[in-house]
Amino acid sequence: MRRAYVMHAKLGLQQMLAYRAGFFLGLLGNLFFLLSMFYLWRVLLKNPRFTHALGWDWSQMKAYLLIGFITGILVSTFTDYTMANRIRTGDVALDLARPIDYQKARFSETLGVALFEFCTAVSVCAIVVAVFGGMQPPTLQAGLLFTVSLLLVVPLKFGIVYMSGLVCFWTTNYLGVSWSRQAIVNIMSGALVPIVLFPVWLQGVANVLPFQAIVWTPARIYLGTIHGTEAVMWLAIEAAWGVGLWILARLMWKVAVRKLVIQGG
């Protein structure tokens, strides 16, 4: 049984490699975005008000933006795009007929893809660091906790992406769903603006949603703004969201399948 999921991970990786042209063009888009953010924040952080409000300077902001870049690439659009396509064409019925768990199979695929995404993102980061100059490495403790946090981003983002793929059982417009998801993740994860710069009420909203764990938690751990017990607590929240979304996705899947079975898709 387990071998079937390993197979799916390999399959995901292979599909990714087959469509790498599309992936790299998408990556280019993320890179342009990173570029504009780099220049913008470089100018903004010349103003002491920002350094004060953020609690870090330009060299640390570089690390922040790169973490946003990596977690942005990780588990991006492959999973929901392929799901949406199979749902739209009705091929999802074939997936239903397989004697393995749909959600676990998609997760295995996503892991395979994520491996590729991660390696690419890190290579790109190395180049960016070479161009824009170095930044401070984290302490050993922060580095370890950061790695855990980065790993936990994968199941968390999977939950979000997987559910947005499932939405296609109710609408044929995958593009609109995907755009909305990206917009919400972009702002509420802190990828666009560090959450600390939000007005207080919006910070409150962001902190009770799962999205902040995608950028805000790992970045703060890396930069040392949270450490020790506080860092572990945010890690626990991140992990809990991963589990929570997994369960929520299961429920959503059940409803979706009932709809498929009753209405015939």
Binding site: L44, F50, W170, T172, G176, V177, S178, W179, V193, L197
Partner: peptide, 28 residues
Amino acid sequence: ADFWILMMASVLMNLVGFVFLWTIFSKI
């Protein structure tokens, strides 16, 4: 439903950019 999803998505995407600018300029 599709129409509204697409409209909402495009407005949402652009609104996020606006919020971004607004947050920055609230400081400087």
